[in-house]
Nucleic acid binder design. Structure first.
Lengths: 144, 144
DNA sequence: TTTAATGTCTATTAAATCTATAGACTTATT
DNA sequence: AATAAGTCTATAGATTTAATAGACATTAAA
C-alpha cells in the first residue's frame, strides 16, 4: 500500500497540475482543499521542490507551482520519491536494488521471476500515468 | 515491499512444496535451512495452518506439511494472508476495500484507474505463480 | 507409563517507520 | 516596517514489524 505521504503528494500534484501556469498556489489552499494536514504537506512539497518537480515562490503572493510539465511527471517518479522502491522485493528493484537476505542464490531463485514480471507490468502502467492524463481523465469523468 | 514475514512464509512454503508428500518436516529444520528465526517462523506456520494451507502433526516425529496441493497455492493467497491487501490503494482492493480518505469522489477520481490496472496485472501474474511452478522453475534454473 | 520431541498459544519487548506538529528562521512584497 | 508566504530542524506520538520468552498440550516411542 502507498503511504499517506505518497497519496497526499499525488493529490497535491494533481491539484497543482489543474492550475498549471496559473501562478503559485499556497500551501494553505492545497491543504484545505485536499484535506491534508498543513505541516505534513509542507514537508512533502519541500521534497518535491528539491526533486525539481515543483518550484516555489517565497514571500507574499508566493506558493508552489508545477515546475515540470504535467505530461512529464508520472506516478513512478512520485512514488519513488515518497515511498521508495516500487518492486515487491528488493532483489527485483531497479532503483533500490538489494540482494534478498532470505535468498541463498539469486540465480536459481524460483521466486524472483514472478516479481520481476509484476514490477515490469507495474512500471509500464505507472509510466503512462502522467499528471496530464490524470487531470484529463478527471475532467472526462466529471462531465458524465 | 513485502514484509519479512511474507518472504519467510514464501520460502518456508517453497521448502515444504519441495518435500510434498514426504511426511512432516519440523520447524527447526525449516528455520535452519532457510535462515528464519525459529520463534517467528512458528507464528507464521501456525497462521498458514489455520488458513488450511499447511497441516501439522504434533508430538515426536511431527512437523508441518503442505495440506493443499503445490499447484493450488499461489502467491496471491500467501501475500494476502501475511501482508493483507495487494493493491496499492485501499479503494482498488478486492479483498480489503476501503474508500480513500483523501478522495472526495471515487467516481470522478482520475487516479484510481491507474491503480486498478496495476492491481489487475499484478493479480494476473501472482495467480499463475503457484508453489508447483516455483519449485519447477527452481529446478530448471539450478540445472543450468 | 514415563519421557522426550514436537507443535500451540499468550504475552511481551525492541526496533523501525509513519504521521503529525511546533517553532524559529528566511525571503519577498507592499 | 509589516506582513505573508515558504524553509528548516527537531521531536512527539502512534502504529507496525520483527523477534523472543515461557508455559502448555499432544504424540510416539522406549
Amino acid at each position: 500500500m502507498l503511504s499517506k505521504k505518497c497519496k497526499y503528494a499525488i493529490h497535491a500534484l494533481v491539484y497543482l497540475a489543474e492550475r498549471y501556469q496559473q501562478g503559485p498556489v499556497h500551501i494553505q489552499e492545497i491543504a484545505e482543499r485536499q484535506h491534508i494536514p498543513k505541516k505534513f504537506l509542507e514537508a512533502i512539497l519541500l521534497e518535491l521542490r528539491n526533486a525539481k518537480v515543483l518550484n516555489s515562490k517565497k514571500g507574499k503572493g508566493g506558493g508552489y507551482y508545477l515546475f515540470k510539465k504535467p505530461e512529464d511527471v508520472n506516478l513512478i517518479e512520485i512514488i519513488r520519491l515518497m515511498d521508495g522502491a516500487i518492486a515487491m522485493l528488493p532483489c527485483v528493484s531497479l532503483n533500490y536494488y538489494e540482494p534478498c537476505e532470505e535468498c541463498r542464490d539469486e540465480k536459481t531463485c524460483g521466486i524472483r521471476d514472478s516479481f520481476l514480471g509484476v514490477r515490469d507490468e507495474t512500471l509500464k502502467i505507472l509510466r503512462e500515468s502522467t499528471l496530464a492524463k490524470i487531470v484529463k481523465r478527471e475532467k472526462a469523468l466529471s462531465k458524465k
